[in-house]
């Protein structure tokens, strides 16, 4: 999924860079200082996702979970995924410096789109339905990513079109796997800590209710 330095045309690199800066600016604007620890920890979680390998056929792929990142973080998924890509590029040599913008747009923008499309419906559904929507969000964000990669290759020269097609079709099993894994993850989150997938107001309501429940439980424990 990473494009490396030297393959893309300068126009594509510059365009990607500009879009990435715009997305980062928007994402950082939605990131008040007291949200930074939570976003940083979640960003680290999504970095760890890329270290988890899941078997697919005879080979294995690493998770990306960008759809889930969009669901949990919204616009702030943009800076969060950018940080992960920056660290991977500098310390592991995955991807490169000049393509960082393009790679960020290719991975983070689908995450944000999937997040916006499915956040509301996931938060309102019961766990099973939410799992289905979460799975669709996960698969959609990967398919958009491969589509964006294919587009950035195609824009760089007609000779890349077969490679771009190959990238797209080779990723179909990965879309399915990401979809299944995201669905299961959303199901678990809806059962264990639905606040993670809820928007601000709903989360506040939930927090109030859960603290009441916890207080009741604590009283019961004392009485018992």
């Amino acid at each position: 999924m990473h494009i490396v330095d030297g393959a893309l045309a300068p126009e594509v690199l510059i365009g990607g860079g500009v879009l990435a800066v715009a997305g980062l600016g928007l994402g950082l604007r939605k990131l008040p200082i007291d949200k930074i620890p939570a976003t940083g920890v979640l960003s680290a979680t999504f970095f760890v996702a890329s270290l988890i390998h899941v078997p697919v056929g005879p080979s294995s792929v690493h998770l990306i979970m960008s759809g889930l990142a969009g669901l949990v973080l919204g616009w702030t998924a943009f800076p969060a995924l950018f940080v992960g890509l920056l660290l991977q590029a500098i310390f592991f040599g995955f991807g490169g410096l000049t393509v960082l913008g393009v790679n960020t747009v290719n991975i983070a923008f689908p995450a944000v789109i999937a997040g916006f499309m499915f956040r509301g419906v996931v938060a309102r559904s019961n766990p099973t339905a939410a799992a289905v929507w979460g799975g669709i969000a996960g698969a959609l964000s990967i398919s958009l990513t491969t589509l964006f990669v294919a587009i950035s290759l195609t824009l760089s020269g007609d000779a890349f079109i077969p490679a771009a097609k190959l990238v797209f079709f080779a990723h179909i099993p990965i879309m399915a796997v990401e979809g299944f894994v995201s669905a299961a993850a959303v199901y678990l989150i809806m059962k264990v800590k639905p606040a993670l997938l809820m928007t601000g107001d709903q989360a506040n309501e939930y927090a109030v209710q859960s603290s009441i429940i916890l207080a009741e439980q604590a009283n019961e424990a004392n009485n018992g």
């Binding site: 620890p37 939570a38 940083g40 920890v41 979640l42 680290a44 979680t45 760890v48 996702a49 988890i52 899941v54 078997p55 697919v56 056929g57 294995s60 998770l63 979970m65 889930l68 949990v72 796997v177 299944f180 894994v181 995201s182 669905a183 299961a184 993850a185 959303v186 199901y187 678990l188 989150i189 264990v192 800590k193 993670l196």
Partner: peptide
């Protein structure tokens, strides 16, 4: 880990749990 639906679901639960724990840590 195998090529089964059970594997993918377990990895999903694993990652979901990781997210929940990381948010509580945050």
């Amino acid at each position: 880990a195998r090529n089964t639906f059970h594997t993918y679901r377990s990895f999903g639960y694993l990652f979901g749990m990781l997210l929940v724990r990381s948010l509580e840590r945050a």
